[in-house]
């Protein structure tokens, strides 16, 4: 029994140690701003198409599916409210994080994993550079900066998607009413929740990607294994965290 637990406990311990040293590294020099900007470009600009499409269609699908239910109660005017609350609180942050997990956590794990198996990480340390500062910190800062921004974009495009379906396609409600109900529905609590979530997801996504990359052993096969593990673990953590943060906010 203890042997079965040993591995996950060890993994968690190592992950926590890396997280502590990366979070402390944020305040340590050197800053590696150049690397951070490159990562922001890779993660932020690179994810724009996938995040835009996901945001737009999730809003559109929600309006589409809600239409029938709302028609039953004669509440079609509320479609904007439902799309807004769901997008800002849950769908925007979670779907964006899952897309970024699939795209970037895997990318981090495979890039750092390849560096590990080709001794580039050892070379970096031997040449006097701390891999946590040089590799993990820029990815952490970049993800924590761009994921909330990507989420805002996904939220907005989701509302646009919902508007097109509800007002243009199905003509459930006038456009002005859609935007008015959507605008009124969102409270500060929703916005706070909708921005804190992607910030927390970003920290987990980047650290999980980097952790599995740096732990890679076993050549190219090991890189593939790390990449898969990074995506799976990051995605699972996103859905667990959204529940925990959601629960905290419902108590506020």
């Amino acid at each position: 029994m203890l042997d079965i637990l040993k591995r996950p406990v060890y993994t968690f311990q190592e992950f926590v140690l890396l997280s502590i040293s990366a979070l402390r590294g944020v305040f340590r020099k050197p800053a590696y701003w150049g690397d951070t900007v490159i990562q922001m470009d890779l993660i932020g600009v690179g994810s724009l198409p996938v995040v835009s499409l996901t945001g737009f269609f999730s809003g559109a699908v929600m309006a589409l599916q809600m239409a029938r239910a709302l028609q039953t109660y004669g509440a079609t005017s509320q479609v904007g409210k439902i799309v807004a609350i769901t997008m800002v609180r849950e769908m925007g942050p979670v779907l964006t994080a899952l897309m970024v997990a699939g795209r970037n956590s895997s990318g981090m794990a495979s890039e750092l994993g390849s560096m590990k198996v080709t001794e580039q990480i050892d070379a970096m340390r031997a040449l006097g550079t701390d891999p946590v500062l040089k590799l993990v910190k820029p990815r952490l800062i970049a993800t924590a900066t761009v994921l909330p921004l990507l989420t805002i974009l996904a939220d907005f495009l989701g509302l646009v998607g919902g508007w097109i379906v509800a007002c243009v396609l199905l003509q459930l409600t006038p456009g002005a009413q859609y935007w008015d109900t959507a605008w009124r529905a969102i409270e500060y609590n929703d916005i706070a929740q909708g921005l804190i979530k992607p910030f927390c997801f970003a920290i987990v996504l980047s650290l999980v990607g980097c952790y599995y990359g740096l732990q890679t052993t076993g050549g190219t096969q090991g890189v593939g294994r790390s990449t898969t593990q990074a995506v799976v673990v990051a995605s699972v953590w996103v859905v667990i965290l959204t529940f925990i943060i959601g629960r905290i906010f419902t108590k506020l």
């Binding site: 080709t118 001794e119 050892d122 070379a123 970096m124 340390r125 031997a126 006097g128 701390d130």
Partner: peptide
């Protein structure tokens, strides 16, 4: 510690098996 090591490592040159070059 790693930062103390960095001063020592500055006095050492190393060639890794596969070269260890940053690709």
């Amino acid at each position: 510690t790693d930062s103390q090591w960095n001063d020592v490592r500055a006095r050492i040159g190393v060639l890794f098996q596969e070269g260890g070059l940053f690709d």
